[in-house]
Design a protein around this nucleic acid. Sequence first.
DNA 1: TTTAAAATGTCACTTGGATGTCACTTTCTT
DNA 2: AAGAAAGTGACATCCAAGTGACATTTTAAA
Lengths: 216, 216
Amino acid sequence: MFLLVEDNESISKGLEYSFKQNKFDLKIIDNVSETIVFLETNNPELIILDIALPDGNGLDLYEEYIKEKNIPTIFLTAIDEEETIVKGLNIGADDYLTKPFSTKELFARINKILRQRNKNTIIKVKDIKFDIDKMVVYKNDVPVELTSLELKILQILFLNVNRVVRRTFLIDKVYEWTGNDINDNTITVYLKRIREKLKTDIIITIKGIGYRIDEE
Amino acid sequence: MFLLVEDNESISKGLEYSFKQNKFDLKIIDNVSETIVFLETNNPELIILDIALPDGNGLDLYEEYIKEKNIPTIFLTAIDEEETIVKGLNIGADDYLTKPFSTKELFARINKILRQRNKNTIIKVKDIKFDIDKMVVYKNDVPVELTSLELKILQILFLNVNRVVRRTFLIDKVYEWTGNDINDNTITVYLKRIREKLKTDIIITIKGIGYRIDEE
DNA sequence: TTTAAAATGTCACTTGGATGTCACTTTCTT
DNA sequence: AAGAAAGTGACATCCAAGTGACATTTTAAA
C-alpha cells in the first residue's frame, strides 16, 4: 500500500484516480498529525510526501517518523523549496519531484525505487557494513553479534552518515516508547559496547554534542 | 519460448540474431491477427510486443488476448506513444521500452521479469520449499502439514527472505482482518510450532526486533 | 445434530542474555 | 590546572522469547 501526504486536493484527487487506474492501493492523508498516527499501525511500502503541509513540515515528519522505518519516500516540492530538500536526501532510497509533475514521471520514479528496494539496503563505511533489511552488521564481511538496542543505536548513526547525531536525539529515538527517564551515561555505555564489538574507530565523538560516522 | 510481435524488420532481424546468440528460442510474428491464432495453441513465457502494428494495436491485443493468460509482456513504443502506454501498465509484471533501445537493456528487463516470476511461485531455502501458489510447504520435497495460520506466518517470512520481519508486522498482517487484540506471545507460540513441525533452524530470532529467514 | 479432532489463543513459568546504573578513571577544553 | 564530558568495568536487575499445558473455538465427520 502506498501513502500520499498532500493537502492540495487537485493533486491528491488526480493521483487517487491514476493509482486506481493502475490498481494500486493508495491511502491519502492531508496533514502531519494524522500521518503520525497512521504510521504507528501501518507500514506503507512507499510514501509520497508533500513538504509544505498545513500543520507542519514534511521534512521534519520524515526525519522523525519515517526515516527510521526505512520506508522509501518521494518528496513533492515547489521549485523554490528545491534547494532545501536536496540536502536532506538520502539519495538512492529516496527521491523528489518538483511540482508540477507528470503522473508518468511519478510512476517511473516509483518503479525505480521499488526496483532498488528488492535489492538490500546496505550502508558501508570502511570495513563495517550495515544491512538495514537484515539488521545485521558485518566487519570485513563477518557478521558481528549486536543486541537489539546496540543495533538500533548503530542504525541511527548509519542512517545519518556524515551528520552529527546528538546524544539527546539518540535517547529520544531509542526510548521514545517508554516513559523512562534514561541516565545520560547509558548512551555512553552503549557506544562503548558497540565500539568494543566492532573493534572500530568509525564512530567519532563530538564532545558536548554527540557522535558521527564519516564515510570517506 | 519467447514471442516477438514486431513489423519493423530491422528490429526483428536484429533481435532474432541476439536471441540466437544467447540460445533463446524466439518466435517472430509481424501482425496482430497471426498473433491471435498463434496464442490459441502456444504459451510463450514472455512476449515482446510492439504497440503500432500494421493491422491493429498492441495494447488492445494485450488487453484482449494476453492479459488474461498472465504472460509477462514488454511493450515497445515510440517516444510519442509513451504517454498512452504507461497508463495501462500492470507495473511489476510488465514493462516497456522506448525505441530505440539497446539489446542489453531489453535482456536486463527480461531477466528482471523472469526473476520476479520465479520468485513468486516457489521459494526454496535450504531443505525447505514454499510453494506460494499451492500454499504448500515441503521439507526435502515431502509436504509438511501446517495449519492455515502457520502457513500465513511462514509465508510472510518467506516473502521477506533476507529481511527482518518485525513481530508487530506479523501481528498486523496475520490479524489485520479482525479487530482482536492479539497477545504478543501468540506469535512466539506459532513460531515454536512452525519450527517444531519443520524441524528446521532456518528461522532466525533477532531478539527485540523479529524473525528472519536467510538464503545462503 | 452431536461429537471428536484439530486449530487457535492464552496462561504461568523459565531462562539466559540484555539492559541500566554506579563509582571511578580518563580525556578534552579553556 | 580545573571542570566538564565521556569512557570504563563491574554488578544487580529485568525482560523478551521460549516452553508445556490448558481452555476455547472451529471444522469436519458420523
